[in-house]
Computed example of a mutant assay.
Amino acid sequence: MTTPEAPLADTGSAGPGCACSGDTSCGGTGTANIGADSAAAAGAGGSAGSVAEWTRGRLAALSDPVRSPAELSGSLCLVDDLGVDSLGFIETLVAYEEEFGVRLDEERLLLSAYGTVADLTEHLAAVADSARAAR
């Protein structure tokens, strides 16, 4: 179980970790691999790397235009760079809960809770790791 966090308003703009902060001109120039961005240990459904791969695949499919998972770097903004919308994001989080056998705090179900691919990946890997440790 994760530590409760303060609720964030879903403003539809980039989340807290996004360097773009609503500026779509950045183009997401980061080159870090999101598997390397996640420092969490093994997760409930596998390693932090498998959570990162799963997340990268889902985000690539949600991106507008659709991209290859290999094109996603940790510094890309979910909204500004990838064009992720709130409905697709919620569907992805529900699929994550089912895939990895975990539950996310309601406050973390908002797109605005995450700015970048790395923010989301690191949180999901940490949740899976906590669930695994609790078993």
Rank of each mutant, 00 (worst) to 15 (best):
L104H: 06
A131Y: 08
S47C: 15
E97L: 05
A61Y: 12
C77P: 08
S75M: 05
D105A: 14
A9C: 06
L82E: 04
A39C: 15
P16Y: 12
G46I: 00
F100R: 00
L59A: 01
A9R: 11
A40M: 02
L111N: 01
G101E: 10
V79A: 14
A60T: 09
G46M: 06
L93N: 14
A70I: 00
L8R: 13
A41Y: 11
F100S: 14
T11H: 12
L110P: 00
D64W: 15
V84T: 09
A134K: 05
V51I: 02
R56G: 11
T24P: 04
W54T: 00
R56M: 07
D10T: 15
C20T: 14
V84K: 03
V84Y: 10
A61S: 11
S13M: 14
S63C: 05
G49E: 08
R67Y: 11
L78A: 08
R135K: 15
L78Y: 14
L82W: 11
S38L: 12
P4E: 08
V102C: 02
E5G: 09
E53R: 10
D119P: 03
G12I: 15
A125W: 03
L93Q: 08
T31N: 06
S50L: 02
A36K: 05
A126N: 06
A42S: 13
S25G: 15
F100L: 01
S130L: 11
D23Y: 04
T11L: 10
R135T: 06
A134R: 00
P69G: 04
M1D: 12
L120S: 06
S38I: 10
L120K: 10
Y114I: 00
R132I: 02
A70H: 07
P65S: 09
F89N: 00
T116E: 04
L8K: 05
A19L: 13
A95W: 00
A113Q: 01
C20H: 08
V51T: 13
T24C: 02
R135I: 00
E106M: 04
E5Q: 15
